[in-house]
């Protein structure tokens, strides 16, 4: 898991902040006095969601739901009246650990939640946020829906493809980037919106792309 450094949003692509005037540091999110780690523990037992991150460092072979992840999984179960309802958060958690949801993961999750593997596959494939195959360290999702599109999203997408040297939906050779088109990310007033792992980048113009890509590459070094 990559480390987090306060006040340097680019250092932690797992953290969702903003660029420019919307930039939220972790301190701002919690309040000025907040110091602490990302709540891997998963929040209040009955309330706050156990929020999976899409992290740059993925461990496809990692053991699932052990140690702190076991605790988070158990917390998830307490929040719903049925085990089935824990399926989406549990898949999210599995993806946070492994970076994608493969058949073996589905099988394990099915076993944990007493569901059939086929059922879990059906649910997993319904939702776009579960990566069914490995993706790059950075999953770049460029919104090209109507509002962003009107403001040049197609060009932003093309520029991302150029600077990451990859094809749409493919992972770049260095394993750093997978660039895909996204549907509306609900940041239409701040076009173009680009989601990179967990983080939204708003008001992205083609001119910003090179800088973003360079910075992300540096984090990888």
């Amino acid at each position: 898991m990559s480390g987090r450094s306060k006040g340097a949003p680019f250092k932690n692509p797992g953290w969702a902040g903003n660029t420019g005037e919307f930039d939220l540091s972790e301190a701002q999110v919690r309040g000025d006095d907040f110091v602490g780690e990302r709540p891997k523990h998963g929040g209040h037992a009955s309330g706050a969601g156990t929020l999976p991150y899409m992290l740059a460092d993925k461990e496809p072979e990692a053991r699932l739901f052990e140690g702190e992840y076991q605790q988070r999984f158990e917390k998830i179960l307490t929040r719903y009246p049925t085990k089935r309802a824990a399926l989406l958060p549990t898949l999210g958690l599995a993806q946070e650990i492994r970076g994608h949801v493969n058949p073996e993961t589905m099988d394990r999750v099915a076993e944990l939640l007493e569901l059939s593997p086929a059922y879990v596959r059906g649910v997993t494939t319904f939702y776009t946020m579960y990566n069914k195959a490995p993706v790059g360290r950075y999953l770049v999702q460029v919104c090209t829906n109507i509002s962003c599109n009107l403001c040049g999203a197609d060009e932003v997408l093309a520029t991302f493809l150029r600077y990451t040297d990859t094809e749409l939906g493919e992972t770049s050779e260095d394993g750093n980037f997978t660039v895909i088109e996204a549907e509306c990310l609900a940041a239409c007033g701040f076009p173009t919106c680009v989601q990179i792992n967990s983080r939204y980048y708003e008001n992205v113009t083609p001119a910003d792309v090179q800088k973003i890509v360079e910075q992300l590459k540096k984090v990888g070094d």
Partner: peptide, 27 residues
């Protein structure tokens, strides 16, 4: 039911909720 792409928003809500639980506004 918060949209999954909203990691940051989820985070803000989660923190707020924890605080609200701690202060006895929820629970």
């Amino acid at each position: 039911y918060c949209r999954g792409e909203f990691f940051e928003t989820n985070q803000v809500l989660a923190r707020a909720l924890e605080d609200a639980y701690a202060k006895g506004y929820v629970g």
